[in-house]
């Protein structure tokens, strides 16, 4: 197996508050191979966005990485000083957020922002950088790029803005793009365009993508592998078809059943009883145990590790060796 591009080991993100320390991400580990699209899916409060922010050092204080390692091509980046991380952001890891306006400064022409980023990371001169900026805009499908490069962000529609943000993320030829809910603010028809674009860019530029979203449909279409998060932990991780088609963790199963589809005509949707635990009182043992239909004693006391279940890994005691032997 090739060396992973990005490797997360036992990542732990904490928020100290006056009522105690909240653990928002708790022992998360995964790898992303070069050129791979890893989907990270979960409901609000699952810790998926914080995982992304922690990787690129953009946690809002008082949030902090309290444990674990982040390795980019085998080199630790979680303990770098802020300046070192800033050099990696944009250059080796690009970023796309839900709201394009968080990445684009409304006061500057998009060309200025692109050229600045290109020059900062590549040392091209102004003319070369402008040519590259236009090429990038053409690449992400902005019509009349030579003219539009001098427009301001507000002169673009939501979909076009997200294309510009993609161009900005690609400006310095990064190896990885972290995309946090990149299509959530867009209409379905535009969403389809952006997803197709991301897949093509990923292939042509050989960038890996960490795609963070709550939308299983987007993951189904885009990702190679998917990690399902629940209460700050990975519940299940595996190839996207297996996680969607043959989920093993009871939470993943419930989640898949609760998504209404265009084809199924079931009168009632499957529903998971109860609601996501608050960070202040995550149950002991398996975080999902109070809502789980298959819960047994071990789940209430001992936290499950990721265990092999067919082609996926599921953090569930149902797949412990002794259980499988009896089943």
């Amino acid at each position: 197996m090739t060396e992973p591009l990005l490797s997360i080991r036992e990542l732990r993100v904490e928020f100290p508050t006056r009522r105690g320390i909240l653990t928002a991400v708790d022992g998360v580990s995964f790898d992303i191979a070069p050129g791979e699209v890893l989907g990270v899916v979960g409901e609000s409060g699952a810790g998926k966005s914080l995982t992304g922010a922690a990787i690129i050092g953009l946690l809002d204080p008082p949030g902090r990485i309290a444990g674990g390692e982040v390795l980019l091509k085998g080199q630790r980046i979680d303990n770098l000083p802020p300046e070192g991380l800033r050099r990696i952001r944009g250059k080796r890891i690009g970023m796309v957020f839900q709201d394009p306006l968080t990445s684009l400064n409304p006061l500057f022409r998009i060309g200025e922002q692109l050229i600045e980023t290109i020059q900062l990371h590549t040392g091209m001169n102004a003319a070369q950088a402008r040519d590259r900026a236009i090429a990038l805009l053409v690449d992400v499908g902005i019509p009349a790029a030579e003219r539009r490069i001098d427009a301001y962000p507000y002169q673009f529609s939501g979909g076009m803005r997200q294309r510009v943000v993609l161009a900005l993320a690609l400006a310095a030829d990064p190896e990885l793009i972290i995309a946090d809910e990149p299509t959530t603010a867009l209409d379905v028809s535009v969403q389809a365009q952006i997803i197709a674009l991301m897949k093509r860019l990923c292939r042509e530029h050989n960038v890996a993508i960490m795609l963070i979203t709550h939308d299983m449909g987007v993951i189904a279409e885009t990702a190679d592998r998917v990690a399902v998060m629940y209460a700050g932990r990975i519940a299940e991780i595996g190839p996207v078809r297996d996680v969607i088609g043959r989920a093993h963790h009871p939470y993943t199963q419930g989640l898949m059943g609760s998504i209404p589809t265009l084809t199924a005509t079931a009168e009632r949707l499957t529903q998971i009883p109860g609601s996501m635990p608050r960070l202040t009182d995550i149950p002991t043992g398996c975080a999902f145990n109070p809502r789980c239909p298959h819960v047994f004693d071990r789940c209430r006391v001992e936290r499950p590790e990721l265990l092999p279940a067919e082609r996926t890994l599921a953090a569930c005691w149902l797949y412990a060796a002794d259980r499988r032997a009896t089943a």
């Binding site: 197709a196 449909g217 078809r241 265009l262």
Partner: peptide
């Protein structure tokens, strides 16, 4: 038709949906 084609579907894992041109 366009709206229906644009909806992501779980059954589509790995397949491409049909993007439509333009925006509202």
């Amino acid at each position: 038709r366009m709206l229906l084609d644009a909806v992501p579907d779980l059954a589509m894992a790995g397949r491409q949906r049909k993007p439509v041109d333009g925006e509202t």
